[in-house]
Amino acid sequence: MRISFTKMHGLGNDFVMLDAREHRLPPMTAAIARALANRTTGIGCDQLILLEPSEAADFRMRIFNADGGEVEACGNASRAVALLHGKAATVETNGGMIEVAPTKGGARVDMGVPRFEWEAIPLAYAMDTLSMPVGWGELEAPVAVNVGNPHVVFFVEDADAVRLDLMGAGIETDELFPQRINVNVASVTGKDAIKLHVWERGVGLTRACGTGACATAIAAMRRGLTGRTVDVTLPGGVLTIEWNAHGRIIMTGPATESFRGSFDWGDYA
């Protein structure tokens, strides 16, 4: 069975897009997603994105990380989906309903309303999510926020100096986080500017993470470190995050189609 795919990326965070809205595919499994994401023997990606019909929205987006795990949300993939779809749409995700619309060179995404309750992150036990009384080495007192998926955000003097490649896995899998966690290390570089590095759950260090940019911007705003609109600079480029008057997170940034191709499902099943 020959399957078409589109390879896309948002600021270097790359995706294999499978469109099953009109022609159904065999069931996706963690093993198949992991095999397709493999950069040596598969197509290669940070996330595999599966588009399916939805009764509640224009269509449904399912997201599988490179380790095969299915997750709730992906901001960069949402922009890529907007570009692929070609017009404004409501999209059902496991993290909730979002709205996407293509723009010149990218897309605008309404990511919904952030959650701050410890149960919504979720954490293993109750604590203040604005300044968590925990730490890992030099990283202390993070902010926790759920923006469709769970994040902790550490604010430091110099984000570039933190060896997140060595620390990320230990924080991600700490027993404090029963569903694991995305780890963000950020520096506020101006009134409305942040530099950010992200260890993505199930992926590792990534050039960009849309939900990480959203979570970090919201964390900075909650602490009074920035205004309500902020530019977040990641290794792959810049995203603009707004926390609007209705409490909703609006993310704007680029998305790009890299190439199209096809594969035999049986080679990966």
Results as ranks from 00 to 15, higher is better:
residue 153 V to W: 05
residue 268 Y to T: 04
residue 42 G to I: 04
residue 128 D to A: 07
residue 156 V to E: 01
residue 238 V to C: 00
residue 123 L to I: 15
residue 152 V to D: 10
residue 172 E to M: 15
residue 63 I to K: 00
residue 133 P to I: 08
residue 99 E to L: 00
residue 96 G to C: 13
residue 40 T to Q: 14
residue 93 T to R: 11
residue 86 G to F: 15
residue 102 P to Y: 14
residue 74 C to G: 15
residue 19 D to P: 11
residue 57 A to E: 09
residue 116 F to G: 03
residue 92 E to W: 12
residue 128 D to C: 08
residue 76 N to Y: 05
residue 182 N to S: 07
residue 263 F to H: 11
residue 244 N to I: 07
residue 229 T to Y: 02
residue 192 D to H: 06
residue 231 D to K: 13
residue 238 V to F: 08
residue 85 H to S: 05
residue 87 K to F: 07
residue 239 L to H: 03
residue 241 I to V: 14
residue 83 L to C: 10
residue 196 L to I: 03
residue 70 E to I: 08
residue 258 S to W: 08
residue 99 E to S: 00
residue 132 M to I: 10
residue 149 N to S: 09
residue 212 G to K: 02
residue 265 W to H: 14
residue 20 A to P: 15
residue 254 P to I: 13
residue 237 G to P: 05
residue 161 A to S: 09
residue 215 A to H: 02
residue 247 G to M: 09
residue 98 I to Y: 04
residue 187 S to T: 02
residue 87 K to N: 06
residue 217 A to N: 06
residue 117 E to M: 13
residue 207 R to P: 04
residue 155 F to A: 05
residue 139 L to E: 12
residue 21 R to S: 09
residue 115 R to L: 13
residue 252 T to W: 06
residue 6 T to R: 00
residue 119 E to W: 14
residue 160 D to E: 12
residue 262 S to R: 05
residue 87 K to A: 14
residue 109 V to G: 03
residue 1 M to D: 10
residue 240 T to Y: 04
residue 241 I to S: 06
residue 250 I to C: 05
residue 129 T to F: 01
residue 98 I to M: 06
residue 25 L to C: 03
residue 78 S to V: 15
residue 197 H to K: 00
residue 254 P to V: 14
residue 106 G to K: 06
residue 127 M to S: 14
residue 46 D to L: 06
residue 173 T to C: 07
residue 132 M to T: 03
residue 154 F to T: 12
residue 57 A to W: 01
residue 67 D to F: 07
residue 234 L to S: 07
residue 58 D to I: 15
residue 143 V to E: 03
residue 186 A to S: 09
residue 192 D to A: 02
residue 85 H to L: 15
residue 250 I to P: 11
